[in-house]
Nucleic acid binder design. Structure first.
Lengths: 346, 346
DNA sequence: GCCATCAACACAAACGCTTTATTAACAGCG
DNA sequence: CGCTGTTAATAAAGCGTTTGTGTTGATGGC
């Protein structure tokens, strides 16, 4: 800490102080701080020196008022999975810091009724410059339409194209097919599937991938072995119980996310079914939990961090009218083999 | 959606428009919107009606500049546990919304070197009005001192008193003693303990509680059965392996948090030690994961949500100079019995 | 009926920056 | 050397609030 006298006489320096000390007009100081052209290097240095000496910090409120920009992006989400949200927050923040922006979080835990007006107000009050929409709220048509109609910059993290805004997607279909193929390669033919929440686009994509891989291997999907889940532990648990209660039960269960896979594992443990001896179980997402379960869960790792980086970058470029502010991106998952999947019994 | 023409001719209404329509001065409009006294009810109604008609939204940037308040609080944290942070964010946000404030997140994942100046800048730039400090950064002496020295409002979530700011604490010592007592009541006398990260105050408090309860029951703490951990799965796993490798091993292991308890569970599973038949395991925190482990984990539920509510409320009162802005609070945990603890064998 | 009191409101000056014109400096060119 | 065009810097006008100082009309005590 070399700032023994950081609060210079208790008064914060303003742009006028800097201009006076550097013997230039305030506009020139503004130019320097906004990296605008038409400033001679020598002048620039003089301004910077003066700013440093006065410990000058541009007042953000004033900048915002004058420039009509907030230097803040809003992060909208209604996903209850902490790990996912935290990863998105961290990734987005990493980019924001590079651009000198900040993040305002806006979880929508309650009914989405007031959500649209809340979001619009946030923008019209000058709180934020745009929004990053995480799944599944990024698939809310009313919200997207409202943002689009008012020209509010936004970038969506979603598997579904919706409106004209850029969209950062993960190829869930492909990854689910890859996972199914992994089970098939282990010799499984009786494969059960636990679907995710029907409102999430990802749930359908993963199901599609499963179906495609099964068909490609010439295997039939037994409808009795396909259960509807809700992306949470409880739904996975009850789906697991139902699947394991069948007269002829599957030798492998592919749950659409890790939480449900954990539920399936618990159902198996309760009934004394060994994993992966008698039953292989796999999930999706590679949540931290997947490494800590017993046995550790085979799953598919989403590049969440990468998604967040891209989403924030595209949004900021969009806000700042830079190139690349309208590009969508498609990312891929990575299969993570752990101990919960093994060769088919018999 | 009843706002078919929300953007009234595309131009946002200002306080002048409202004043003109209501036939009062802008100062009066300001009074109404800030709930200040000296406005006749009839006048107030006229202003509100005009505001509604024009869909007036006070411009926050202008308010901030003029009032020198940001209507935003910063949330500082360096805790890697997503569930904890998300819970804190949600609780704090709940209170903030009541007061019309917002939250700016500021995780400090890297070295805390620049942290102090970052935080101070955030305040001096007018980005935030104060800070909510979560564990363990709330125990960073340099940061606390800097905030205190510059009179930056802050509230700490921590077990350790530090400086003069209000502190929201959880009685970890008591809860750990209660948990230990639970094991003793189940007949255990050979009880192992996995400590948390030495930098976290909570780790020491929980250890103290354990020691106290053991002493109170006339049991001796075998130093061979006390392992140092780091509050993560891996450290719990290796501590578990060491404890289970002992010639005479404990019949119960109390891990200082759920992550480490999961590690102990995995170590037990690997060695074929049945839980809770041969070994009881308990954790601390009641993370969502604890419900989903096998067997479900006995743990101690921290009132995280309550902590966040209180912390935000005290901070906002402090910022707004209301009563209660200097009160510290101490909350209590709740023992959550699940299947991972049972009677001592033999 | 007059002066003090007070509620209710008007006016104008900040707040600290960006932005739009505008002027000054400076080069190239015939 | 004067003309033009470009670059560097200035002056002044907002941005939409809050806030301090003034002003007015109504109330009440004597």
């Amino acid at each position: 800490m070399n700032d023994l006298f950081p609060a210079n006489q208790g008064k914060k320096a303003t742009i006028d102080d800097v201009a006076a000390l550097a013997k230039v007009s305030i506009k020139t100081v503004s130019r320097v701080f906004n990296a605008e052209p038409n400033v001679r290097p020598t002048t620039r240095d003089r301004v910077m020196a003066a700013a440093r000496e006065l410990d000058y910090q541009p007042n953000l409120s004033a900048r915002r008022l004058a420039a009509k920009r907030a230097f803040v992006i809003g992060l909208l989400y209604d996903n209850p999975q902490s790990d996912y949200i935290i990863a998105i927050q961290e990734g987005a923040l990493q980019i924001c810091r590079q651009y000198g922006y900040h993040i305002l979080i806006h979880p929508c835990t309650e009914e989405p009724a007031g959500l649209v007006s809340e979001a619009v107000n946030l923008k019209s009050q000058g709180m934020v410059d745009g929004f990053l929409l995480s799944q599944p709220i990024s698939e809310n048509a009313a919200l997207i339409q409202a943002l689009e109609q008012r020209n509010i910059p936004h970038v969506r993290i979603s598997q579904r194209a919706l409106g004209g805004a850029p969209c950062i997607s993960v190829n869930d279909e492909e990854a689910a097919a890859r996972m199914t193929q992994h089970l098939i390669e282990l010799g499984h033919t009786r494969i059960g599937f636990v679907m995710g929440h029907p409102d999430h686009g990802s749930s359908h994509d993963r199901h599609d991938g499963f179906q495609r891989a099964m068909a490609a291997a010439g295997l039939t999907v037994n409808p009795d072995w396909v259960e509807q889940g809700l992306y949470n532990f409880e739904s996975g648990y009850s789906a697991g119980r139902r699947l394991l209660a069948a007269a002829l039960r599957p030798t492998a269960i592919f749950a659409c996310n890790d939480h449900m896979a954990m539920g399936v594992l618990t159902a198996a443990h309760e009934q004394g079914v060994t994993v992966p001896g008698q039953l292989s179980v796999c999930g999706f997402d590679d949540t931290p939990m997947a490494r800590y379960s017993w046995p550790p869960l085979t799953t598919s790792r989403q590049p969440i961090h990468q998604v967040a980086l891209l989403a924030a970058e595209v949004l900021l470029k969009r806000i700042r009218n830079e190139a690349g502010g309208d590009q969508s991106h498609l990312l891929h998952c990575e299969l993570v083999r752990r101990a919960s999947t093994g060769s088919a019994p018999g």
